[in-house]
Design a protein around this nucleic acid. Structure first.
Lengths: 344, 344
DNA sequence: GGTTTTGATGGAACCGGTTCCAGCAGGGCG
DNA sequence: CGCCCTGCTGGAACCGGTTCCATCAAAACC
């Protein structure tokens, strides 16, 4: 209800002075500043960010585009970003956009095109060139998490390297009959995580001198625990396709596999080693060896990068700057050497 | 860059007419409307919601306060609310506020007090009287999910009844040695869900003529799968405290218990029946009998209620209107009669 | 046929801040 | 002693829309 004009009147100064006193910009004597602050407090004045945004062009608000909320990686990223943004005085407005869709177009045209945000963070969403162009044309910085986008600063782990490391862990234990279970290319998650992890897996096998030609090396499943559980039942149920070790593309899949294995009476790790990628909080209770990535760090990093860009905008660097965050192997007891060493 | 004045000039009309043509309010001839729309498209005009909000007082944006993002119930609610709000042309701005804290105070004073939102939805957060008052004083409607807040419309399930139903299911199977495992009162989740579910449990026992006086009927744990796993190991590990059935306060806890039971060689349901509350997507793969609540419906309902209130505001009804949404029992094979019928 | 109603439009005020510019006092400097 | 610089303040324009009010033509009414 109360506007800055009311504060000014009560304090006996002009609107301009009141504004300066409250925002801390420009010259104001300490005396009048105190008067103004007292007056503001007295009538319970709260500034209208809308009015301020209108003239300054800054909204103190960041838009976030994310394909899932409930999946672990994404909810972790979200929580850490929210935290970091709040600390810096920014609002976070959320757009949950699963696949490319008419709806997604609408969000871009209708929501993001308006100048409601100082910047945008896109998490695990492969933006099309037009979408990037649209966002760029608005002059708003854009930071991505999870895979390179043309002309956008991006934070990610190296999925190929991570998959390679995970696979190499199994190889180093002596496994030669290793299977990869992960997401399929036509998953809704449209980034290249799936194919990258598959690539890293194959690369590690080849480097170890193993053939990657034969079939049955890879099985696709939904990127969830039930997804892993189901392929687990079918793949491990058939003794002919049962490997001695599995590299799962995510911890949830890995855990699903472990649950399936236990139901089938397969000992982990004696009969079957399992390794995942993520660092999921459930990993510990299933004693899952995993390659930890750190979504919270990724989220925080993205926020920092975006806010830094807002502080002093770099002159439209066309080269997409990619920041690769580290992963680390957390060894638990879901992996060990194979029961019957191959070729002995 | 381009303002409505530019559109007006190009179309050869006044600002007022252009505004009417584009917003669809007031009289505009079909002919000039087309002219204006064409002009707007030509220069790529997008309206500034800030400017509009400034005069209309409506922001087309809803604030959401939520204590967790990554826990199942909350992420489901969040996803459904985001969906529903987007459909209606609203933005959703997220405040992730775990416990009452100085931070939370800051959010209220600094973020919510500003008139950035048309309304607020609070999910699973027990607002203090002052917080409610603050929000009310802003004249913005407020809807809650999950437990009554003084003077606020709330959507929730009946936790006491749900717990009672779950317990009665076990009783009807012939169990008399039932334990409840759930969250503790000093959990960060400050609503009464924990105590309500405990109350319902005890009520069901009493109605069945069982004593609720002896100790060892309830064990507290963290409200997660690892939380359930850990109490599971300790409670079931000791044969003296092992019941024939467990009512878990959430599916995640229940699943943790099942995993623990399996590791201990306890057959579910032959040696131990387990029932949960939630309807978690993992319930199926663990064949968990559960009392399903429907967070997505709760979220959608909350959005509808809030938007309805925005459409035609009811004159400050002081009585807190509580909408109770139904739950339903989904019977799978984690529950059966006890192996050795009691008292035979 | 004269008056009222309806439809369409333009002018101007307004929402609530920020910022540019001008003015003014007093202290430091040449 | 006059001038300039610094610190401080007020007036007014402005951001980009919406809406009230006045105007006016054409249609509808009695």
């Amino acid at each position: 209800m109360s506007a800055i004009a009311d504060v000014a009147r009560l304090a006996g100064v002009a609107k301009a002075t009141a504004s300066r006193a409250l925002s801390g910009r420009g010259y104001v004597s300490e005396e009048t500043r105190q008067k103004v602050i007292a007056a503001a407090r007295e009538i319970g004045y709260v500034a209208s960010p809308n009015a301020a945004s209108l003239v300054t062009g800054r909204t103190k608000s960041i838009g976030v585009i994310i394909p899932f909320i409930s999946r672990w990686f994404f909810s972790e990223v979200l929580e850490s970003m929210e935290q970091a943004l709040l600390d810096e005085g920014y609002d976070m407005t959320l757009y949950n956009l699963p696949a490319p869709s008419p709806e997604r177009e609408r969000v871009f045209d209708y929501f993001l095109a308006r100048k409601r945000f100082d910047g945008v963070i896109s998490v695990g969403v492969a933006l099309s060139d037009e979408e990037v162009t649209l966002l760029h044309r608005l002059g708003r910085p854009l930071v991505g998490i999870g895979g390179p986008i043309r002309g956008v600063d991006t934070i990610a782990i190296d999925d190929v390297a991570a998959a390679r490391l995970a696979t190499e862990h199994l190889l180093s234990l002596g496994h030669t009959d290793i299977v990869h279970i992960g997401g399929s290319k036509d998953d809704e998650m449209d980034f290249q995580v799936h194919s990258n992890r598959l690539t890293g897996f194959f690369a590690a096998l080849r480097d170890a001198g193993l053939s990657t030609e034969r079939s049955g090396l890879f099985f696709a499943c939904e990127f969830t625990m039930p997804g892993g559980y189901e392929v687990g039942l079918s793949v491990f149920g058939d003794p002919r396709t049962r490997p001695t070790a599995v590299f799962a593309a995510s911890d949830e899949i890995a855990i699903g596999l472990i649950v399936a294995a236990r139901e089938l009476g397969i000992q982990v790790p004696a009969d079957l080693s399992v390794i995942g990628i993520d660092g999921h909080p459930y990993a510990d209770m299933f004693r899952l060896t995993t390659l930890e990535q750190h979504p919270r760090k990724q989220g925080r990093f993205a926020v920092e990068a975006l806010l830094a860009e807002l502080e002093n905008p770099t002159p439209q660097s066309e080269d997409d700057h990619l920041t690769v965050l580290p992963t680390n192997l957390a060894i638990r007891s879901s992996t060990s050497g194979p029961r019957q060493p191959h070729g002995s």
